[in-house]
């Protein structure tokens, strides 16, 4: 039974089935509304308060800790199949406050606010003194690696010209000096041969994104570039996109269906 406080709300165990269901609904909501970066997964329910709601239902006020996964938010892979980014990779963690309404057995997010930060350099170096830390996206080595990787991908991909959408993460390692990047590309209305001026190439109305990982290893006078991209199925443009933040509510009973076909991979 809820633990009455006399303060208007009740306290329930953070690991109670209802708190867990509310937290999972909240994390689904978070991932559906993230517009860049990687999907997050629930690590811990920090606090739960349950407020009665008139005329019906109750509101779960949750504080959640989340961890970054290796799946980009545009990747249709279900969250359950996404690996958690490990501390040695300099992962990002999230702190979130949610209000989730429970009514008629259904959970609906009413309010969401999250902050995310990379783990501290000290924490990473405590477990791995030689591991690479995250690099700034405007670092010249990062920008060079991303541009070289995108060019290489387009040269091998003899058809549609893919444009840069977002640099998602980047790391520079000590000698042999290497740069590792992860970035998002999208198909345009240009062909590779016809993309003399990429600024004139427009994204397709039916968006087709790809997620790429690349590395540039530098040895004396030699550079070795490697790039792998996974191109996802085309995504119909939603009727309205709330660029300012999360919509006020989402019907968790009807999550968007994943694509019927697995994502195509291009090397």
């Amino acid at each position: 039974a809820p633990h009455a406080t006399g303060l208007g709300f009740s306290e329930v165990a953070c690991d109670s089935p209802d708190a867990e269901q509310a937290a999972l609904t909240a994390v689904d909501y978070l991932n559906q509304h993230l517009q860049r970066g990687f999907k997050h997964t629930l690590n811990q329910v920090d606090k739960v308060k349950v407020w009665p709601r008139r005329p019906f239902g109750e509101v779960y006020e949750l504080e959640l800790d989340t961890l970054e996964t290796t799946c980009h938010v545009l990747d249709p892979t279900p969250l359950a199949n996404c690996s958690v980014r490990q501390l040695v990779d300099h992962a990002v963690e999230g702190d979130c406050d949610f209000h989730v309404l429970k009514q008629d057995g259904q959970f609906t997010v009413m309010h969401a606010q999250c902050h995310s930060n990379p783990d501290s350099a000290e924490d990473v170096q405590k477990v791995c003194p030689t591991c690479a830390l995250l690099a700034s996206f405007n670092d010249s080595r990062v920008v060079n690696t991303v541009n070289a990787a995108l060019n290489a991908f387009n040269e091998r991909n003899n058809g549609t010209y893919f444009k840069m959408v977002e640099i998602s993460r980047a790391q520079n390692t000590p000698p042999p000096v290497s740069t590792f990047v992860e970035f998002v590309v999208a198909a345009t209305d240009c062909t590779v041969q016809g993309a003399a001026d990429p600024t004139k190439c427009n994204l397709l109305a039916e968006k087709q994104y790809g997620f790429c990982k690349a590395s540039l290893v530098r040895r004396l006078e030699d550079e070795e570039l490697s790039v792998t991209c996974k191109v996802f199925q085309k995504q119909p443009q939603p009727a309205s996109v709330d660029a300012a933040g999360p919509a006020p509510a989402v019907d968790q009973a009807a999550p968007p269906a994943p694509p019927a076909n697995p994502p195509a991979s291009l090397l």
Binding site: T5, N43, D119
Partner: peptide, 27 residues
């Protein structure tokens, strides 16, 4: 914050309600 520990006269150790379990690793 004042929290009632349970029904008056209830015996036994207090149950820790929160935070919940760590699912992956502690930050």
């Amino acid at each position: 914050k004042v929290v009632q520990s349970g029904p008056a006269g209830a015996a036994g150790p207090a149950v820790r309600l929160c935070p919940g379990r760590v699912r992956h690793f502690r930050i």
